[in-house]
């Protein structure tokens, strides 16, 4: 029993140390993150800091007209046969970043956010240098445009969603996905080349990523990542994708892990029995 006592002491010592250097230290180091998350109730899929939104029940037909008048000089909408006005390289040269094709934008962007974004891109994205200017549109015009976009949008998932929502600035090179905008253009536009996201889930974890994407300035003040207003569904879909690509062997690891632990348990049984037998007559 003396040995069990020593073991207990050992477990307490190791346990306290582990608690101190992992949970405790991390909770203290990441305090400002938790505080920000708490302060802004992140993730906030209502984007409540942007104020109220008029009813978004516009007319798609009018929206199409408005789109062609105000948006099509920079954006394409392949879903309705409107091609991008410039090839990506030229677009990146002139705007700093390739403007997105808007075919599916409403399927992954929150519509309220989209309304405020079109009204004042810099304010909604919380990114002053954003390439898109405020167009001075009427609320009704914006609602019409959103209705038009919504009539064409289809749901995208996983890799496709990643490419559409993040892929203009970020790549995932382990999946052979490269940012649509060339790196030097991005560096000029954002001040640095945005990180590759192949294993970002391992580096940051879902808890942080969800909050960060939802409101980048809250967690990393001064960052050149704009708020993009992903809705809840798209955020979750994206998290699942990022987790899969960063940790492709998760399932195998758990399976092999269980087998190895079961194997060790049997080994413990055998070695214990043998030890008992050998030590039977030793006191």
């Amino acid at each position: 029993m003396k040995e069990l006592k020593i073991l207990a002491v050992l477990i307490v010592i190791v346990g306290v140390t582990y608690w101190g250097i992992e949970p405790l230290a991390h909770s203290i180091m990441h305090k400002h993150i938790e505080e920000a998350i708490h302060k802004y109730h992140l993730p906030d899929y209502e984007f409540s800091d942007l104020g109220s939104t008029p009813p978004l029940d516009g007319d798609p037909a009018k929206g199409k007209e408005a789109f062609q008048m105000f948006c099509a000089s920079c954006h394409g909408l392949k879903a309705d046969g409107i091609p991008a006005p410039m090839d990506p390289k030229t677009a990146a040269m002139s705007f700093g970043v390739v403007p997105p094709d808007l075919s599916n934008i409403t399927s992954y962007t929150d519509k309220k956010f989209l309304f405020h974004f079109i009204k004042d891109p810099a304010k909604a994205s919380e990114f002053k240098k954003i390439a898109m200017p405020a167009m001075g549109l009427q609320d009704e015009q914006i609602a019409d445009i959103i209705a038009y976009l919504d009539s064409k949008a289809k749901k995208v998932h996983g890799e496709e969603l990643f490419k559409e929502a993040c892929g203009r600035c970020h790549g995932a090179k382990y999946q052979k996905i490269y940012a649509e905008t060339p790196p030097d253009a991005l560096k000029k536009y954002l001040g640095k080349v945005p990180p590759d996201l192949s294993i970002i889930m391992k580096a940051k974890g879902e808890h942080y990523l969800v909050a960060f994407i939802n409101k980048p300035q809250a967690l990393l003040p001064g960052t050149s990542m704009p708020r993009v207003g992903l809705n809840k569904e798209a955020t979750e879909d994206l998290m699942k994708y990022l987790d899969e690509i960063s940790d492709p062997h998760k399932e195998q690891r758990q399976k092999v892990g269980i087998i190895v632990l079961a194997y060790m348990l049997v080994m413990i049984g055998l070695t214990y029995a043998w030890k008992k037998k050998i030590w039977k007559n030793i006191h």
Partner: peptide, 27 residues
């Protein structure tokens, strides 16, 4: 005699070790 105990201690240690390897490696 000594090794019979050693094997047992090793097995217990390896159980702990592989638990960390597969399920708690972030540290």
């Amino acid at each position: 005699v000594f090794m019979s105990k050693e094997y047992f201690v090793m097995s217990v240690f390896l159980l702990f070790f592989f638990f960390l390897v597969f399920f708690n490696y972030k540290f």
